[in-house]
């Protein structure tokens, strides 16, 4: 009796599956011709004013420039990572970009199931022939803002506030220190990490306290790599009449007049480029490290901070940029050996 039930149910499901495959097949054929790209965001969601939103901006720009429609998906829980990737892959979409290192496992699994689909992951490495791993040389961008911080400081002391104490954030700190010391080895850098847990990314109160403590020690320029915590750091700098340096996206507009610059990490450029490469047949898998040369990182100069950047500073930072691009100056990557020589 039970067997009959199971068989009937199996048959019913089979029929539904065939119907689904037929309709799915039609969608696949239609979109394979357009090679529609797709983005899946991390739990933060696409309007997080930071990392995910930058990816969204890149995709939107591509849509505006080329008229190519793309699809995106915001996950609600971890089970949906694979589900989202797989749903896009089944519809024949390519490339499919996972934003954030949390996608590592999901992309590794789904990319194996769809070897002909292009995948990309930001901030992590998945070693498969159809996956592009996009990394950023945050140390190079941090070096540049370090140069600016050192030149802008009148007290000879600059600060750094990191979020969670992980190798990636030490990489920011190490590049920054190197940039500061390149201007003058006598300038002190006072460093603080907000914490050792995920909560350290979203604790603006503590960020502000750390910044105030640094100001008490004589710091007058502070650089943060601390996500939401950094909002507190920058607020404290603005309140105390000191200078803050933003991170990831251009945060200059947060406190015009008290924002020296921002270290911009161009996730949007990476997303745009992945879309473009795949559409034009220039797709390449493997690790793609985006530094100053590739336009992956940069310092921000706009109407909000041009009063603070003197001609000398601008010349010095542009020279440093050229030196790094030409290879004359090499910025140490903390993550290459998990140590900082500074």
């Amino acid at each position: 009796m039970m067997e009959v039930y199971v068989k009937t149910i199996a048959r019913l499901m089979g029929a539904v599956a065939v119907a689904a495959m037929m309709s799915g097949g039609a969608i696949q054929a239609a979109s394979a011709a357009d090679a529609a790209p797709a983005v899946v965001y991390d739990l933060g969601g696409k309007f997080d004013k930071s990392f995910n939103e930058s990816a969204y901006m890149g995709a939107e720009k591509y849509k505006k420039d080329t008229g190519t429609e793309y699809r995106d998906f915001e996950i609600q829980n971890d089970s949906q990572r694979e589900q989202g990737l797989r749903n896009f892959a089944r519809r024949g979409m390519s490339p499919i970009i996972g934003i954030g290192f949390s996608y590592e496992q999901a992309i590794e699994k789904v990319a194996k199931e769809f070897p002909d689909t292009h995948f990309a992951i930001v901030d992590s490495v998945v070693d498969l022939p159809n996956v592009r791993s996009i990394l950023f040389k945050e140390h190079e961008g941090s070096y540049l803002v370090g140069v600016l911080a050192a030149m802008a400081s009148k007290t000879g002391k600059v600060g750094f506030v990191g979020g969670m104490d992980i190798p990636l954030i030490r990489k920011f700190a190490c590049g920054y220190v190197q940039g500061v010391k390149s201007v003058s080895p006598d300038i002190d850098v006072i460093q603080n990490m907000t914490g050792t847990t995920g909560a350290a990314w979203n604790d603006p109160v503590k960020g502000s306290e750390l910044a105030k403590a640094q100001f008490d020690k004589g710091v007058d320029v502070v650089y943060h790599a601390a996500g939401g915590t950094g909002i507190g750091v920058l607020q404290a700098a603005a309140d105390a009449g000191k200078l803050g340096i933003g991170v990831d996206s251009n945060q200059n507009s947060l406190h015009p007049g008290n924002m020296l610059t921002s270290m911009v990490k161009s996730v949007d450029v990476a997303v745009y480029k992945a879309f473009d490469d795949s559409a034009k047949g220039n797709w390449s898998a493997g690790i793609q490290s985006l530094g100053l040369k590739e336009g992956g990182v940069d310092w921000a100069y706009d109407d909000d901070n041009k009063e603070l950047i003197t001609d000398d500073m601008k010349a010095a930072v542009e020279k440093a940029k050229q030196d790094i691009i030409s290879g004359k100056v090499e910025v140490h990557d903390y993550m290459s050996d998990n140590s900082c020589p500074m």
């Binding site: 290192f101 949390s102 590592e104 969670m164 990636l168 050792t196 847990t197 995920g198 909560a199």
Partner: peptide, 20 residues
Amino acid sequence: SSLMVYLLVNVLAKPGSMQP
């Protein structure tokens, strides 16, 4: 929530990974 964050970040995370 705090306990699990602490354990996953400091004790149980696999070495060399940034994922908690």
